[in-house]
Amino acid sequence: MLQIQEVEFAYGGSQAVAGCTFDVPDRKVTGLIGPNGAGKSTLMEIIAGGLTPSSGRIVFDGTEIQGLGRIRVARLGIIRTFQTPRELTRLPVMENLVFAAPNQIGEGPLQSLFRRSRWAAQERELRLKAESLLEWVGLTKLREEPAGSLSGGQRRLLEIARAMMAEPKLLLLDEPSAGVFPAVRKLIAERIREMVERGITVLVVAHNMAFLSDVADDVVVMAQGKVLRRGTLSEVRADESVVAAYLGGGHVGGTS
């Protein structure tokens, strides 16, 4: 589905991603973990088209997508959520969802004026779909509320529903469980598993091990911009070099 090949990126002098290579297999949840500053979020941003890598390739469904820009990457079916939820705060929850649907008729100025009957019909379908997604994440009652008034956990759920509305092939989730109540975390994990059953491929950055063990088929550990280890969660947790990387980069294979 997605191949990341020798990707490098530097912010000024600091090498955030230094020759990172791994595959994201089709219809699986791949977890991406690593200590702070390992380059996970930067890599997500590169995949999403927000940053252009200085070298390396990112291949999605056989096409190279590095440096295409957010809009074209999104149109290929790669949809992301954000580390800090970014709702359209002054728009109601419903608008936040319907907006995300791809290829809408009436998104151009002329169409909006002269293709009214066509986009109106589409609008009804999209709202029904949005309704069912709201129910799916348990936000039905908040349909009309401005998204800015939601709590942290509700925002995470809304982001997931919104991403689903965009009919993604590959979903990039950046810390979907950060800062939420354990019950909501469980729900989010459940929903992610359901997405995979629907044929969506997921790459998820997370810190919470309980959450990862619920969702991830496979985990990639990054440290200092490189892939350190890959395997199931229990495998990588048992790996000494991974533990060392979390405890402090200088002690790989360390003494204690």
Binding site: G69, R70, F82, L88, F99, A100, P102, S112, E123
Partner: peptide
């Protein structure tokens, strides 16, 4: 229309609009 919604989305957060 959907166009108006896109405009409002861009107004709220251009990065999000582009990401969709």
């Amino acid at each position: 229309s959907p166009y108006g919604r896109v405009l409002r989305a861009i107004r709220e957060d251009e990065v999000v609009a582009a990401s969709f």
